Amino acid sequence: MRLAIFDDYRLGAVTDAGVVDVTGALPWAADPDPLTAGWWRRLCRDFDAVHDDLRQAAAEGEPRDVTLRAPVLNPSKIVACASNYAAHVQEMHDVQQRTLGRVESWMMDFDVFLKAPSSVIGPSDDIRLPPEVVAAGHEIHHESELVIVVGAGGSDIPEDRAMAHIRGYTIGLDITVRSPADRSRRKSHDTFSPLGPWLTTADEIADPGALDIRLACDGEVRQEVNTSALLTSIPRVVSYASRMMTLLPGDVIFTGAPPGVGPIKSGDVLDTSITGLGAMRHQVR
């Protein structure tokens, strides 16, 4: 299924005809407060138990005009992968030399870091550039990525069982300040984690390692890559992250930036798409 969060944080099923409100099919209350919306995390954990009811509600309901929100609610954490495409690692040598005046060799190795959950916005919300960063002359870059949403959480998840812990996938942008600051700080400003347009459940994606990612800035294609180029596979990413921190239902994992990252400025329009997951458009302010 394709699951959307819309309007006043209601649950929708995305059909060919549009978004159908299926909130009433949930067997538990859907708290409309996004800061206490445990219903979403419970859905990520227990989706299999309610799948049939949601599908029936989607078939019987009427599509409606909605405003899509980010397809996650108050995740306990956002885990992000660094240096997971070889061509991106190579381009970062030039990026760092230009923006830092040196190359940080340790940043060229695969690893994971954290982004603030408060940085999440929806699939059509504006990306806001921090005035103090702009005033300091630091470049701010786009990074389009395949994003995992965790279903059944866990720690020390074996790689051969990792796919069973994925609820689904969505599109993400990891907006990044290029400066000497800590990675998490540079990537956690408000609006720096656009997600959307909806969550496509894992059963709909035959192979997450064979998806086309595309980003255009003002119509100019900057990033275009297939996830088959990932250096660390989707199962290995989940397993690796779970060895350092317990993954909880509804947690978000950015799988790494493809090559083609570049600066954004006020007035730019970013169009991002991934095979089978839809598309997003964001205005930069």
Score class of each variant (00 low, 15 high):
residue 40 W to I: 04
residue 41 R to T: 14
residue 41 R to I: 14
residue 42 R to M: 14
residue 42 R to H: 15
residue 42 R to W: 10
residue 42 R to K: 15
residue 43 L to E: 10
residue 43 L to K: 00
residue 43 L to A: 09
residue 43 L to Y: 07
residue 43 L to C: 10
residue 44 C to G: 08
residue 44 C to S: 11
residue 44 C to N: 07
residue 45 R to N: 08
residue 46 D to F: 10
residue 47 F to R: 03
residue 47 F to W: 06
residue 48 D to L: 05
residue 49 A to W: 11
residue 50 V to R: 03
residue 50 V to Q: 04
residue 50 V to C: 09
residue 51 H to I: 06
residue 51 H to M: 04
residue 52 D to F: 06
residue 53 D to Y: 10
residue 54 L to N: 00
residue 54 L to E: 07
residue 54 L to Y: 01
residue 56 Q to V: 13
residue 56 Q to T: 14
residue 56 Q to E: 14
residue 58 A to G: 11
residue 59 A to G: 12
residue 60 E to Q: 13
residue 60 E to Y: 05
residue 63 P to M: 06
residue 63 P to E: 01
residue 64 R to H: 06
residue 64 R to V: 14
residue 65 D to M: 10
residue 65 D to T: 14
residue 66 V to I: 13
residue 66 V to L: 08
residue 68 L to I: 13
residue 69 R to L: 15
residue 70 A to M: 10
residue 71 P to S: 10
residue 72 V to R: 01
residue 73 L to W: 01
residue 73 L to M: 14
residue 74 N to D: 11
residue 74 N to P: 02
residue 76 S to H: 15
residue 77 K to D: 13
residue 79 V to I: 15
residue 80 A to P: 01
residue 81 C to W: 02
residue 81 C to Y: 09
residue 81 C to Q: 03
residue 81 C to P: 02
residue 82 A to P: 04
residue 82 A to F: 08
residue 83 S to D: 06
residue 83 S to E: 07
residue 84 N to M: 10
residue 85 Y to M: 02
residue 85 Y to A: 03
residue 85 Y to V: 05
residue 85 Y to G: 00
residue 86 A to L: 14
residue 86 A to G: 13
residue 87 A to C: 10
residue 88 H to N: 10
residue 88 H to Q: 05
residue 88 H to R: 00
residue 88 H to G: 03
residue 89 V to P: 02
residue 89 V to I: 15
residue 90 Q to I: 11
residue 90 Q to E: 15
residue 91 E to R: 00
residue 92 M to Q: 02
residue 92 M to D: 00
residue 92 M to Y: 02
residue 93 H to K: 07
residue 94 D to S: 11
residue 94 D to K: 02
residue 95 V to G: 01
residue 95 V to P: 01
residue 96 Q to D: 05
residue 96 Q to H: 10
residue 96 Q to N: 09
residue 97 Q to W: 02
residue 97 Q to V: 05
residue 98 R to F: 14
residue 98 R to P: 06
residue 98 R to C: 11
residue 98 R to E: 14
residue 98 R to M: 12
residue 99 T to Y: 04
residue 99 T to D: 02
residue 99 T to G: 01
residue 100 L to S: 11
residue 100 L to Y: 04
residue 102 R to Y: 07
residue 102 R to Q: 08
residue 103 V to F: 00
residue 106 W to M: 04
residue 106 W to A: 11
residue 106 W to I: 09
residue 106 W to L: 07
residue 107 M to T: 13
residue 109 D to V: 09
residue 109 D to R: 09
residue 111 D to F: 08
residue 111 D to G: 12
residue 111 D to M: 09
residue 111 D to R: 13
residue 111 D to I: 07
residue 111 D to S: 12
residue 112 V to A: 00
residue 112 V to H: 01
residue 114 L to Q: 12
residue 115 K to L: 14
residue 116 A to K: 02
residue 116 A to N: 06
residue 118 S to N: 15
residue 118 S to Y: 13
residue 118 S to L: 12
residue 122 G to P: 01
residue 122 G to D: 03
residue 122 G to R: 01
residue 122 G to Y: 10
residue 123 P to I: 09
residue 123 P to Y: 05
residue 124 S to K: 03
residue 126 D to P: 00
residue 127 I to G: 01
residue 127 I to Q: 01
residue 128 R to K: 13
residue 128 R to P: 03
residue 129 L to H: 02
residue 130 P to H: 06
residue 130 P to V: 09
residue 130 P to F: 00
residue 131 P to K: 04
residue 131 P to W: 03
residue 131 P to V: 12
residue 132 E to N: 11
residue 133 V to F: 10
